[in-house]
Amino acid sequence: MTDKIIILQSSPHFKDKDSVPKIMYAVIISLAPAIFTSLYFFRFKALVLLLSCVAACLTTEALFLFLRRKPLHSLLDGSAIITGLLLAMTLPPSLSPELAVIGAVVAMAIGKQVFGGLGNNIFNPALVGRAFLQTAFPVAMTTWIPSVMTKVDILTYATPLGNLKFENAVAQGTLTSLKDLFFGNTGGCLGETSALALILGGLFLLFRRVIDWRIPLGIFLSLTIFTGIFWLANPEKYTSPLFHILAGGFLIGAFFMATDMVTSPITPLGAWVYALGIGLIVGLIRFFGGFPEGVMYSILFMNTFVPLLNRYTRPRILGGRRKG
């Protein structure tokens, strides 16, 4: 044996099969139902947006890896594809592809690579890209079209939450029905319309143990309690928690955005605080803020606290306080 190649390595010598690319590809698979529903409801527009975002993300990532003289294999770990897909899922279908490309470049360059690439970014890159687009092109980002299944011939269309916020939908009784919200037959971003598809994907991720179950559960609980209190107090003015959970970007945020491993806390207690905070801020923005939707900003806001949470929610070591 001494004349053969001997591998000297530090223990442990066994290794679990899971790896970063496997995790990333699991996330991509879990997005499949939402991608298919978006293709079904928005057809060609959805396809163009998805393709342009993914292509722009991959190109930007490759460019930065090349400039930083990093091995190009990280390009294939799937994280750039996920950012591209997630970004596209949060864009309105009527957005022109060149704007989506700008968003994707910003997401990868400013959201991820300037911090040092995968694992070092503070904010969820897809949401950074979306926040940039939202602020840079507010009109284009708030122009909605109905899905192809809606047999109404109008050019612009309000999202269920926009309808709620600006059109006083509760009093007028024009609130989007829960059934439409659940199956996705409504206006909104590519990936947020169908609650069913998102729940399927989220359950797959939970089952595959890719995401921390505490985060979706915590967000869910805190939004339900927050909106529930207001709803019970004044059902004339406020909508039910179920509406708030099914409408807007809540599900895609809770299952796919907030759970991004890199930008969520690593400690169990930290994950709870983070998740409860997100749910609460979503509720506050939806009820009292200037925007109809608050999932993106609340996740980005809580992202900033993650390093702090990681530091101060450190788990208690077995044996407690150190002796001596």
């Binding site: 400013i110 602020t135 840079a136 092109f137 284009a140």
Partner: peptide, 22 residues
């Protein structure tokens, strides 16, 4: 050209300055 409104807003200042400093 579609103007990037973010650039004349405060966040645009931080973004631009950050990138220039880099």
């Amino acid at each position: 050209f579609k103007p990037w409104i973010i650039m004349i807003l405060p966040p645009g200042a931080f973004l631009t300055l950050g990138i220039l400093l880099g």
